[in-house]
């Protein structure tokens, strides 16, 4: 019979018991927390990505409030009203995450194009949308046979059919330090840019990270994707495609020449990040060229009516 003074477990056994209990309790707490927070986390990620697309499309301002188009390519603050229709507002109201998602679902619709410029939907192509978006985020949707692109609809009240206001293409690139991800939004003519945003970048703060700053991004409005030739006309089949980040300011270096229409100011001290952005445009837009030509043609014939 053990003496009453002998402890229940030897020191080593106690240590083992203690560690096992500790590990079990820690793992339990963390697992519970992780599963409880999983959905908010995924929503937060999706919201962030979608916000950036809306910023590129000038539906959301980089400062957080909604925008509607005003006369002459300016934008003014707007607010959320029933079902996602935006009305102009005096104050800059910051919408909630659910409101942003509602507006996104109402006005943005993802679809796929292939190398010939033919459109299809995820359903028809038999591709799972969530899996596709998650799997090819890093390697780039433009590398796939079916390439991701978004249709942006206009702001109309409930019940009316909206017209296509523009398109947005996701961009992948390599900055100075790490990969950069963003969007470019352009008008239905397949050429004029509405805006751009960079939602995932690890560039040098204050230098390369300026690509995520509203001030630098604001110069993209009205630029063209295709480079004009010297005579002012654009040959969509062969012109270089993509916005170029030049060294120095466009107003000083290029003035008002045709090349200035698809160039933006470089950032002092961030040439390599700027080059990364230029390369991202060039490489990501090239596979969409047939589609851009197609929509440009139909835009032209639509205009001619």
């Amino acid at each position: 019979m053990p003496e009453s003074k002998r402890p229940l477990l030897s020191p080593n056994q106690y240590t083992l018991f203690f560690i096992i209990c500790l590990s079990f309790i820690c793992a339990l707490i963390l697992s519970l927390l992780a599963s409880a927070l999983k959905e908010p986390q995924q929503n937060a990620m999706e919201l962030d990505r979608n916000k950036q697309l809306l910023i590129a499309a000038k539906i959301l301002s980089p400062y957080g409030y909604f925008l509607v188009e005003d006369e002459g390519e300016t934008f003014k603050p707007a607010k959320f009203s029933d079902q996602g229709y935006l009305v102009p507002s005096e104050d800059k109201i910051i919408p909630s995450g659910t409101e942003i998602m509602q507006v996104f679902r109402r006005r943005v619709s993802p679809f796929l194009v292939n190398a010939k410029g033919e459109e299809t939907t995820f359903q028809k192509a038999g591709i799972n949308e969530q899996a596709y978006i998650a799997d090819y985020k890093k390697s780039g949707y433009y590398t796939q046979r079916e390439k991701l692109i978004y249709k942006i609809f206009g702001n109309v009240p409930e019940g009316k059919t909206p017209a296509v206001q523009g398109y947005a293409i996701p961009l992948n690139g390599m900055g100075l330090w790490d990969a950069i991800y963003g969007y470019i939004a352009f008008k239905p003519d397949g050429n004029t840019v509405i805006g751009t945003s960079w939602y995932d970048q690890k560039e040098t703060p204050g230098l390369g990270a300026n690509i995520a700053e509203p001030l630098w991004q604001s110069q993209f409005l009205g630029k063209q994707l295709f480079q004009e030739s010297a005579d002012g006309k654009t040959d969509f089949k062969s012109a270089p495609l993509g916005i170029v980040v030049i060294k120095g300011r466009v107003s000083e270096v290029l003035g008002n020449s045709p090349k200035s229409h698809n160039s933006v100011d470089g950032m002092a001290g961030a040439t390599l990040t700027g080059n990364g952005v230029t390369n991202a445009f060039r490489d990501c837009l090239a596979p969409y060229r047939p589609f851009l030509i197609k929509i440009h043609r139909s835009y032209k014939t639509g205009e001619g009516k």
Binding site: A115, K138, T143, Q144, R145, K237, P287
Partner: peptide, 29 residues
Amino acid sequence: ATWGEEPAAENEEPILDSRDPSLPTISFL
């Protein structure tokens, strides 16, 4: 990616590999 005048082949094989065949095989990222 070079973009030539000819469109891609009319009858493509069933999609086993989803990568666009017109792009070079070294992936960017």
